[in-house]
Computed example of a mutant assay.
Amino acid sequence: MLLTSYLLAGLAILLAWPIPVALSRARWTARSPFAAMVVWQSIALAGGLSMIGAMLFWGLEPLGGTLLDALDGGIRLISGNPAANSPGIVHIFALSTATLLGFHLILTLIRAAWRITRQRSRHRNILRLLTEESTSNPGTLVLDHETPIAYCLPSFSGSITVLSRGLVQRLSPEELRAVLAHEKAHLEQRHDLLLLAFTSWNDALPWLPTSKHSMAAVQELVEMLADDAALREVTPQVLLRALLTVATGALGESDMSNPAALPSTATGGAPTEELSSYRLRRLLTPQPPLSTALRAMIISAAVLLLALPTTMLIAPGLFA
């Protein structure tokens, strides 16, 4: 089990720094945002399992060569069997660290979900006072403000899209359809849940390079996925004009007294509408998507990456 601990520690180091840094610089991600998203999820999950597993197996090593042996050794130690091996201070420290890290990650996820849920609830209450239901687009609220702005507010009990009156007046019917398709993709594909997972990861381990790179990458990838959904209904030129109009609203006032400032301050964990230079180039000079075979290879590699630490945790004897 000691060898498994070393292997998991090595994998954790790779997933904490060189691999996410390399992926954040990769150019193929814009050609297949879905595959890139799967890879980032695999890196985060496999990295967490590797960190916890490495310390767990190091701590359990004196109790047995496998998890079952360690469990049996732990039971004999607790029951007072004099023949049972007792872990040393270093091993107890490793076990404690693994346990605390696991609880820390879980509690951070719960806290982030609770915080975001409360923010969205308050935001909905404010929207009831400042908006009116769109007559032509069900599930869409219109904010009586001149700043062009559009965003979505995800919920399991009824998601909504918010548009400002200024945006509706500036957009052509096709451009409005592009914005609505973009926001609809965010809601239907539940991009907020993806962002929640990486937000909690970043909150729990902000010093980790994986956290910083993954959060920035996932925020951009969900926007690319929504762009792709909109492109199935409108042309790139129409979508680009619509996004540029919305982007001007994102650069407006940020005072809480301004209703248009609500998306940036009250919808934590929701997709952002910033139009990055990377997304802009992607729409101006579209590149062909990755081939089906290449996408399948990338996703398969991501699945294998996640399966590696999982297998080590379940059957460490295979690597002994």
Rank of each mutant, 00 (worst) to 15 (best):
I78W: 12
A260W: 01
R190T: 11
A302I: 02
D255T: 02
S32T: 13
A112L: 09
R120E: 02
M55V: 06
L280C: 07
L187C: 03
L262P: 04
L244I: 03
T97F: 13
F57R: 00
R295D: 02
H145C: 09
P206I: 11
L193M: 08
A16G: 15
M312I: 09
L23H: 05
A9V: 01
S86E: 07
L127Y: 06
T248E: 15
V234D: 05
S211R: 10
T131S: 09
V222F: 03
L109G: 02
F198M: 11
L71C: 04
L208A: 14
S159E: 14
G74Q: 07
L63M: 06
R115Q: 13
A35T: 08
L196W: 04
L280S: 02
L77G: 00
L195A: 05
A247W: 12
Y151R: 05
A35D: 03
E132K: 11
D203V: 11
L49R: 01
T248D: 13
A320C: 03
S277A: 14
L239I: 05
R122G: 09
L77V: 05
M312A: 12
P236K: 00
L187E: 08
V179Q: 08
T265H: 15
I299N: 08
S211T: 15
A242S: 14
L318K: 04
L14Q: 05
P173A: 09
D192W: 14
S214M: 14
S200G: 13
G64K: 00
G73D: 01
R190S: 14
L294N: 01
D72E: 06
R177L: 09
A98D: 07
T311R: 05
S24T: 08
L283H: 06
H186R: 07
H145T: 14
S134Q: 03
A307L: 15
S79D: 12
L3R: 14
A216D: 06
V162T: 09
L49A: 11
P316H: 08
A150G: 10
P138Q: 07
T210P: 03
I160F: 03
Q189R: 15
L95V: 07
I149M: 15
S96E: 13
A30H: 11
